[in-house]
Amino acid sequence: MKTTFKIWSLLALFSLSIGVISCSDDPEPEMPTIVNVPDTNLATQIRLALELEASAQITSEDMLRLEELTIDGGSDFSGTISEIADLTGLEYAENLTYLHFGSTKVSDLTPIKDLKKVEYLRMNNTDVTDLSPVSEYTTLTYFNANTARGITDISPLSKNTGLKEIILREVPMGNAGLNTIRNFTTLYRINMRNTGVTNVTILAEMMAAGALLDSTPGAAENGGATLDLRQLTVEDWSPIRPYLDQISNIEGVPAED
C-alpha cells in the first residue's frame, strides 16, 4: 500500500513538473515597439492624426494605422508645424499613402525612404535638395516640390510612371528634368514654371503619346489638362503648337507671330 502511494505521489510530482516546464516555455507576448519621434512637433501631429492622447507613447502598431499625414506649415497659426525639421519615426508608417510636409524645415528624406505605398508626396517650400532617398518609390500619382529650389535632379522620380500631377515650379531641373518625365504618359497636369527648360520637344512627344491633353485619363474630371510653362526661355514652341487646342489650361506659350 505504501509503495503504491509513493508511486502515485511521484507521478503527481512529475506531472506538476511537466506543467511548470510547459508554462515556462510559453512565449511571452510581444510588447509593441515604442517609436522614437525626436521632433516633438512632428510627434504632436502624428498623435493628432491617430487620435492619441497628447502624452501617449507612439507605438509601431499605432504607426501602421497611419495612412494620411498632412503637416502644412503654410497654414500654421501655432508657429510649431512650420518648425518641423525631422521626419524620423515615419519609417514605421508602412501603410502611409498621403504625405504632405510643405512649408516646413525638413531637408532630409531618409526616414521615409523605405515606404512602399506613398501615392501623394508634397514637399513644397522646404529645404530638400536630394530626392535620392525616394528613388525606389514606384506608386506616386502626385508630386509637389514647388519652390524647393535646392532640388536640381529629379531623376530619382523616374520609376513613378503612373504620375498624374507633378508640380515643379522654380525647381531648376532644366532640360534633363524633361528627360526624366518623358515616359510619364499618364500626366495631365504639370507646373514647370521657371525651371530652366529651354526645349519643349519632349513635351510634344509626351502629347503624341497621350499625355498632357484633355483626353488624358483623369484630366476631364479635374477641369482638363493643365500646363504652366511661364518664365521659360524657349526659342521654338512649334513642337507643341499642334496640341494647344486639346489643352484646356495652358499658360506661358506666346501667340504665334
Rank of each mutant, 00 (worst) to 15 (best):
N191T: 02
N125Y: 09
I34V: 15
G73N: 06
T161W: 02
T216L: 04
I202D: 04
A204W: 09
Y188D: 02
T195C: 13
L163Y: 03
S22F: 09
I250E: 07
A54K: 08
D130T: 05
V37G: 06
L87H: 12
V171C: 05
L163H: 05
T97W: 09
R230E: 11
N41Q: 10
Q45P: 02
E61D: 15
A49F: 06
E67L: 03
P172K: 13
T180Y: 08
N124V: 03
D108V: 08
A225F: 12
A43K: 13
S55D: 15
S107F: 14
V118N: 08
N183V: 01
N179A: 15
V37K: 00
L96A: 11
S215D: 11
T152G: 10
T198R: 07
M123K: 00
G177N: 10
A43L: 13
L227I: 00
T70W: 03
A220F: 01
D257I: 11
S155T: 09
P111R: 15
Y142Q: 00
L227P: 06
E53D: 13
T70I: 11
W8M: 07
M123V: 01
T126A: 04
E68I: 08
L232S: 11
G223L: 13
I81C: 12
K159F: 07
A209N: 05
A225S: 15
V128R: 09
P38D: 07
I190T: 04
P242G: 12
E251F: 13
S9N: 02
P38W: 08
M192L: 07
D86W: 00
A219F: 04
E221C: 03
T147N: 10
F184L: 05
P239Y: 13
A56S: 15
N183Q: 08
G150C: 02
H100N: 15
L87I: 10
D25A: 01
T59N: 14
G196R: 07
T139G: 02
T4E: 06
L16F: 14
L213I: 06
V234T: 15
R193T: 01
G218Y: 03
E170P: 05
L13W: 02
D72M: 01
R182S: 10
Q57Y: 14
V197D: 07
L229I: 00
L66A: 01
V234M: 15
L178R: 11
F101A: 08
G210W: 02
E235H: 12
R182Q: 14
R169L: 11
E221F: 00
I71R: 13
L16A: 14
T104E: 00
L187F: 04
T195D: 05
V128L: 04
T195V: 07
P27S: 00
V200C: 09
R149A: 06
A225N: 11
N125V: 03
K2R: 11
V234A: 15
T147D: 10
D62R: 05
T33V: 15
L11Q: 09
T104L: 00
Q246K: 12
G150Q: 07
L64I: 10
T104N: 01
P239H: 12
D153T: 03
T186I: 06
L121D: 02
L168Q: 01
Q246A: 08
T97S: 11
G89A: 00
P29N: 08
I7P: 13
L50Y: 04
A12I: 07
N95R: 14
L42A: 09
A85V: 00
I202R: 02
V134C: 10
L168D: 03
S158R: 10
E235S: 15
T88M: 13
I250D: 06
P156H: 02
L90S: 01
E170V: 04
Y92G: 13
S158C: 05
